[in-house]
Computed example of a mutant assay.
Amino acid sequence: MPEDSAAKFDAVRANEYARQSRIALAGYDACHELTACMLAAHLGHDRPARILVVGAGGTAGEIIASAKLGPNWDFIAVDPSEPMLELAQRNIAEAGIQTRVQCMLGNVSDIPAQEPFDAAVMIGVLHHLPGAQMKADVLKQISIRLKPGAPFVLAGNYRTYASQPLLMAAWAERWRLHGASSSGIEAKMAKILQGADPPVSEEAVFSLLSAARFEAPLRFFSSLFWGAWLVQRV
């Protein structure tokens, strides 16, 4: 994630992230848990594995769930936002798995590619990257750090928000369901839209993945604009 995208995730946003993200994404915890389940189904839950987690700052839900399923899995977690990475580290420590997770402040391109990973995860990042080229670059950087055949879980918003006004209205109503006022809803929706640039369609996601040498996309979770897919490195 570039610095200007990462700057949105400051200390204020980090402090409210755990609650706000679970409202913004209906099924937030289910997505993270299913990510762990998909990895375990592909890798085998009892086999050793090194897993790269890109944009790991926040709840670290995908790491915590995966560590429960894969007792022999280790993780490298990278994020360019220091407040968000610190939040993840606190949650990882509370889960008692800090010896299995190496947290790095920076971008995926900062991680050496000489020792390829057995799997990778990137949740909630792609739609914050402006332009198709930046999205393609991040996916390529992940791809070259994976073993052939390795699974990669990608999750985030797809489809332009303006293309689905009914989904946008439902999204706003979800905030109302959780007690937000009309002015509060406007503020929340404005924050969601701030700097967001989701791929225009699922087909666009698949095209980006294919160009980065990923194949066989399988969507295993969906929620309004959000999708989660498992693919394999060619």
Rank of each mutant, 00 (worst) to 15 (best):
P2A: 10
A6E: 07
F9E: 03
A11W: 04
A11R: 13
V12A: 14
A14C: 06
A14E: 03
N15A: 15
E16G: 10
Y17E: 03
S21R: 12
S21G: 02
R22A: 14
R22N: 06
A24K: 11
A24M: 08
L25H: 03
D29P: 01
H32L: 12
E33H: 10
M38L: 07
L39C: 01
H45C: 09
R50K: 15
L52C: 04
V53C: 09
V53D: 15
V54Y: 04
G55W: 02
G58M: 06
T59W: 02
E62L: 05
I63R: 07
I64T: 04
A65W: 01
A65P: 02
S66I: 01
A67C: 07
K68E: 12
G70W: 00
G70R: 06
P71L: 06
W73C: 01
I76N: 01
I76W: 00
S81T: 11
E82R: 15
L85C: 07
E86T: 12
L87N: 09
L87I: 05
A88I: 06
Q89S: 09
A93G: 08
E94W: 00
A95K: 09
A95Q: 06
A95W: 04
A95L: 08
I97T: 01
Q98V: 07
Q98H: 11
R100Y: 06
V101I: 12
C103Q: 06
L105S: 07
N107T: 14
S109E: 14
D110E: 13
A119Q: 01
V121C: 04
G124A: 01
V125G: 07
L129A: 07
G131L: 07
A132D: 10
Q133E: 15
Q133T: 13
Q133K: 06
M134T: 14
A136Y: 05
V138N: 00
Q141G: 04
Q141N: 15
I142M: 05
P148S: 13
P148Q: 11
G149V: 10
A150R: 12
F152E: 04
L154E: 06
A155D: 02
A155T: 03
A155K: 00
N157A: 12
Y158A: 13
T160S: 10
A162W: 06
S163Q: 12
Q164D: 11
L166P: 00
L166S: 08
A169N: 08
A170K: 10
W171L: 12
W171E: 05
R174H: 12
R174T: 12
R176L: 09
L177M: 12
G179N: 03
A180D: 10
S182M: 08
I185R: 00
I185Q: 00
A187H: 03
A190P: 01
L193H: 07
L193T: 05
G195D: 06
D197C: 13
D197S: 15
P198D: 09
P198R: 07
P199N: 08
P199L: 08
A204P: 02
A204E: 15
V205Y: 04
S207N: 11
S207D: 14
L208E: 03
L209A: 13
S210Q: 14
S210E: 14
A212I: 10
R213N: 14
F214K: 08
E215F: 05
A216S: 15
S222P: 00
S222W: 02
S223K: 03
W229M: 09
V231L: 11
